[in-house]
Design a protein around this nucleic acid. Structure first.
Lengths: 158, 158
DNA sequence: ATAATAGCTGAGTATATCTGTCAAGTATTT
DNA sequence: AAATACTTGACAGATATACTCAGCTATTAT
């Protein structure tokens, strides 16, 4: 359950590759393809989206390729995935494009919203820089292993 | 991204309905269908799986229906979803059925594993009882909003 | 016994999404 | 102007989703 599409996965791997080689000039799509084992044609689709989103920049012509548009500390995994797969939306009624008819009457609405918010917070907190450093991830809940409950979810940072 | 299938969603809603009416004798599939707006035929599929998993019990014949097999404090949302949709597996290489060829060489492996573990912890910590109480959910990360990082993920409970 | 109720099961199907490929560009540099 | 590299949109096969349907089995009330 809750699988990520390959587009998102490859997108993050591609971004990693670009970040890794930054400073050595633009990274060609061919290189990304070879290093990360993803076809050039498929990468074109993915990188095109990321470029339009302003996460990477491209340089045309011989010697061209892709480079980060910002410092890797300022690029989150969440942002990359959102551009490629749309926002986190556990259920269709939480998708901003669709909307929920009976928000208040639905017992589970808040459950899915809360889960979605957690995931979002995780993904937005994780930066490309962290991937580069191999600095990796002990989770949001460092504590007990059981969720923190409270009367109501209310506003949560976001 | 990361959408849950309707089977999982309906399953949780059905479990809620059964839990809500527990103490009034078995709940018929027809009632669940009407209250939760899911077709009888589709519910049969869903409830059948949950019954075989031992989460609910059924009584045949007139006056029959479904009831919880355990205290709602002991039934987690994670367990319900796992029976209906399989384990959380953000990527195919983290699916126990498939396995990963290059675990160590893959930079993103740990990222997805960590995200998956978080989700799992959230879902397993959330019990049917919590839904009943409308006692809902402030999330795993009560703190800063940024993920807690550490050198390596190491063993985490499970 | 038997009729009515209620759950049980597996097969089947339409639709949508995913996971790509292909072809024909356009822009830039040497 | 030739070579390199990115850009775009169309399209297609495979898989998964979201169901329905038909016919069955078990249980209880009369």
């Amino acid at each position: 359950m809750l699988r990520l599409s390959t587009k998102g996965q490859y997108g993050v791997r591609a971004m990693y590759e670009i970040a890794k080689c930054s400073g050595l000039g633009p990274v060609t799509i061919k290189r990304i393809s070879e290093e990360q084992h993803v076809s050039v044609a498929y990468l074109e689709q993915i990188l095109s989206k990321l470029r339009r989103a302003g996460i990477i920049k491209s340089v045309k012509g011989p010697g061209g390729g892709y480079m980060l548009a910002r410092d890797p500390k300022l690029i989150s995994i969440g942002e990359i995935l959102r551009e490629l797969e749309g926002p986190v939306a556990i259920t269709s009624c939480l998708d901003p494009k669709e909307g929920c008819v009976r928000v208040d009457s639905c017992v589970t609405h808040l459950l899915w919203k809360s889960l979605g918010d957690n995931i979002k917070r995780f993904l937005d907190g994780m930066k490309l820089q962290d991937l580069l450093q191999g600095d990796q991830f002990v989770a949001l809940a460092s504590k007990s292993g059981s969720a923190v409950k409270k009367g109501f979810s209310g506003r949560q940072g976001r």
